[in-house]
Structures are given as structure tokens and as C-alpha cells.
Write a protein that binds this DNA or RNA. Structure first.
Lengths: 254, 254
DNA sequence: GCGGCTGATTTGTCCGGACATATTGCGGAG
DNA sequence: CTCCGCAATATGTCCGGACAAATCAGCCGC
């Protein structure tokens, strides 16, 4: 019927971006098809062997692609019965349980910030964030909104490793996450993000900035971004009003 | 030196528990060795091919086992340099980002509950939890503690599918999660858990039960447990005092 | 019509091999 | 002594194949 859509290697070309692995290309293609609803009302995906033919790759590659989509909560797989689009439950919510999800979250909202300046982290604050005392950072502060002129869903303090200070000036306001921009500018990759979530009462600063009563319940999310060498690239503290933000995630298998 | 430690099939024996896949057995073995610190101060694990020989399995199996440990945040893998135990950062904290982590969390604390009785979920509450209105449940309520007589770290309402009501009587108080017990008693498997987290103010009931001021900030976690057929087996709402509970998780790769 | 059995389908597990790419350590050139 | 390049090493990607286990559709007997 149709010849295999080879996910072209793209070894040549001026594309400075390294050619992505094939399973990533297949996953992207399937993610796009899921988004456009091309799998019909029942959401049944082709079988693995059918996808192998379609994209001209081995079953290993197809399974690796499907595994990604599964951890993103996009699909559901059952032995014997096949793979289906996961429309139920949390499909319309935003799973921030992988780095791609975090980027989507950033892409779906807008972050306006300003540079506060150089900062040295005191012992108390460092311990609170789980970082080394007396380490040096560039401090940014800003708000995140879902609609351009809507209410802020978060007040965020960002601390960027002082070694990356020269890249701070090039950071764009808007829809791209800071860590993505930093990784591109600095030529490294974010390998892991640690998150701590807890509830607390809004202080006066947060209350004023977010337009909520003092001592209102807020969700505090501390994120530590590490590169492949385990160096802390960025740390951030986000304060979300309790009534404007819900954190959704999925947990799979055993 | 030593002959391969074959993860014996265990097909026979009275063990009613189905033989686990080999990668699971290897993962368990490595997890135990990590816990006992048998990989030395630098935490360097053997190479994949060494593990293949040690356990008498293929590289596929070893990689699948290591993948599990990685998503649990126990190890760190880097191309070219090998696999190491992840002692830094959140190692001592509790990652509840997979079902095993949730079970560990339950195992590390104690849950005391009492059966409230049959309950029909009203429209408002059902919508809040993301369940069907007018569905029928068995309602339990209880507290979770880290030390036997310490302060409660959570006040939890549990709703168990009415179809499983006959198993409710056999549920044990203590350190094993309810969903694990239900799965065993009912002969099914928990395939996915959806979680929603948000901050809110303690109501009077929570305040009294947890011994905190009214309107104190609390973390509210709603969990929906589904089996392999996507049926909702259990739903739970946990209220954690903001100053006694932090939710930690890791996010890997891209 | 109904229920159970059987076979086909589909994903899960597992193997062996191959090459790519990142890292590390070593040795030689300067 | 320092820096560069090369080779060894380790994980990442990818292939083809095989069997197991869960599911599903259809046939058959009742």
C-alpha cells in the first residue's frame, strides 16, 4: 500500500541538532497522530508489527517508542488486546512526570521574569533547598500565567549556577522553559530534576504578588535541575495558590 | 570464580505467587545489594556484561532490571563511565513516583483505620474525585503515622469499590498498603494510579484529627487506583499537614 | 441460544549479536 | 610538564528471532 516512512537519518544537512534516535522519531510521529485523533473513535493503535512495517524499523524501536508514550500517559497497552489511546481519566490534564511534560507545562503557560542579580546562598536557605552553603547564583524572580492577562498561577524564584551567568542575558521571556534555554546556550543536557512538594501558608510577599490573602494555603515546589555530570544547573522555588493549581501525575505498573 | 546465580524459575514449589520475570529478580537482587552497601564507597556497579555473567542472563534482562532501578532513583547511568549507586541528593528521601515507591512509603509508616460503612458518592464529591456520580463504595477513614505513637502525617479517607466489599473485612491494619491487600484478595493487579496534589486550608474535621489549627495549610493528595481493565478499584483522599510532610520525586531524561 | 473449547492475535519476556557514542586513561609529541 | 590524540571501556541504539502469556473471535456441542 504505502512504502515505509523511513524516519530519515538526517546525518547530513546543516542541522546542528544531532539526529534523534529512531524510537524518538517514531514516538513523535505517533504523538502527533494521537493529538490529531487519527486513530478513530475507539483509539486503537496499529499492532507493533504493523508499526514496524509502517515506519520501517524493528520491533525493538517500536516498543521503545510506545514505552515513552506510555510513561507520558498517552497510551495504554494490554497483552493480547493491543494498544489504545488513553482518553479516559487524566488525559486532558497535564502530567508533569517527565521532562517533556515539564516542557509542555512551560509551553502551555507564560513566564515573565526579571533578573534580581548575583546572590550567595546562606546556610539556612541552602539547607532548605538541599544545596551547598555559600554557593553562588544568579537570582531571577517572576510569575507564571496561563493566559496572558489572567491571574498568576505561580510566583517563582529561580537560581542559576553562577558559572552560567553569561547566558542569563540571553534568556527569553515567554513560553520556553528556562532550563531548556540554559541547556541549549550552555551546550549541556538536563539529566534529572528533583522535586519536593509541600503545602505552606503564604507569606506577605507571596500574598501581595499573587493577590491572595496572607496565610492562604499555597503549594510550594522546589526543583533542582542537574546536568549529566550531576552538577546543579538551576534551582527554583515555585509558590502556587492552592485554588489555582493542581499537580497531576500518573504512576504505572509495579 | 563463582558460578552464575541463576534466578531459578521456581515453576514448581507451592508458591502461589507466579514466577516473576527474570529482570525483576535481578532488580530485586541488585536492590538488596544496594541497600546493604555492597558496592563500596564509590558505589560503582559492575558493568552490564559482568552482571550478565553473574546472573546468567542476557544483556536485555540486565538492562531491563537496571532501567527499573533507575526510575526508582536508586542508580545513575552514564554512557562511557558506568553505573553508580545514587547516594546524592534525594537518595535518603522517599520517591513515590512508582507503585513500588508507594508500597515502600506504606511499609515505612503505619495506617490505622476504621470502616465507616457503605457510601454512595454524590455528584459534587464524585466530580471532585473524577469518578462517576451515584457510584457505590465502602468508606474507610484512618490516620497514617511514621512512628507508632508519633503525630499523624496524614488523615485519609479511602473509598473501595462496592464490588470488593466482601474483602474489606479481611484488610489488615498496619504497614501494608490497602491496595496491595485488595489486589491480592481480589486476584487482580493494580495497573495505574492517578494522583492529584494541591494545597488547601484545613477544615475543622482535619484540624481536630491532626491536631493542627483550623485553616492551617495542608497538602491534599487524591489517588485513583485502577486495575488492568481500567476499573477504579479504590480512591483515596489524604490530607497531610504542611509542616509534617514533603512529597519528593525525581524526573529523568528527556 | 448458551457455554466452553480451540486457535489466532497481540503484547511481554528473553536471547545473541552488531554498531554508535560518550567517557576515561594512557602514551607520545611538543 | 602539558596537551593532544588514540585505544579501551561502558552504556545507548538497533536488529532479527523465539517462545510465553493474555486476550479475543469463532466454532462446536448441548
Amino acid at each position: 500500500m504505502n512504502k515505509p516512512e523511513s524516519p530519515q537519518g538526517d546525518k547530513s544537512a546543516g542541522a546542528r541538532t544531532a539526529a534523534q534516535p529512531r524510537y524518538q522519531q517514531v514516538a513523535d510521529a505517533l504523538r502527533a497522530r494521537i493529538a490529531t485523533g487519527s486513530f478513530g473513535p475507539d483509539g486503537q493503535l496499529p499492532t507493533e508489527s504493523a508499526l514496524c512495517e509502517r515506519y520501517g524499523v524493528s520491533r525493538f524501536t517500536v516498543r521503545e517508542a510506545l514505552r515513552r508514550l506510555q510513561t507520558e500517559g498517552l497510551i495504554r497497552r494490554r497483552r493480547g488486546s493491543g494498544t489504545t489511546v488513553d482518553t479516559g481519566s487524566t488525559a486532558q490534564r497535564l502530567p508533569i512526570s517527565n521532562i517533556g511534560g515539564l516542557m509542555d507545562y512551560a509551553a502551555g503557560s507564560s513566564f515573565q521574569f526579571q533578573v534580581i542579580g548575583a546572590a550567595t546562598m546562606g546556610a539556612v536557605q541552602a539547607a532548605d533547598l538541599g544545596l551547598e552553603a555559600d554557593s553562588r547564583w544568579v537570582h531571577l524572580a517572576g510569575k507564571r500565567r496561563q493566559q496572558p492577562h489572567g491571574p498568576a498561577i505561580a510566583l517563582t524564584d529561580v537560581y542559576i549556577n553562577a558559572d552560567l551567568a553569561r547566558h542569563v542575558g540571553g534568556l527569553q521571556q515567554g513560553n520556553q522553559s528556562l532550563f531548556t534555554q540554559l541547556a541549549e546556550a550552555g551546550g549541556f543536557r538536563i539529566a534529572r530534576i528533583d522535586q519536593d512538594l509541600r503545602a505552606m501558608a503564604a507569606g506577605s510577599r507571596e500574598a501581595v504578588a499573587l493577590g491572595i490573602p496572607r496565610r492562604a494555603p499555597v503549594l510550594r515546589i522546589v526543583r533542582i535541575y542537574r546536568d549529566t555530570d550531576d552538577r546543579v544547573v538551576e534551582a527554583s522555588v515555585s509558590i502556587h495558590p492552592g485554588d489555582r493549581f493542581t499537580y497531576s501525575m500518573q504512576i504505572d505498573q509495579g
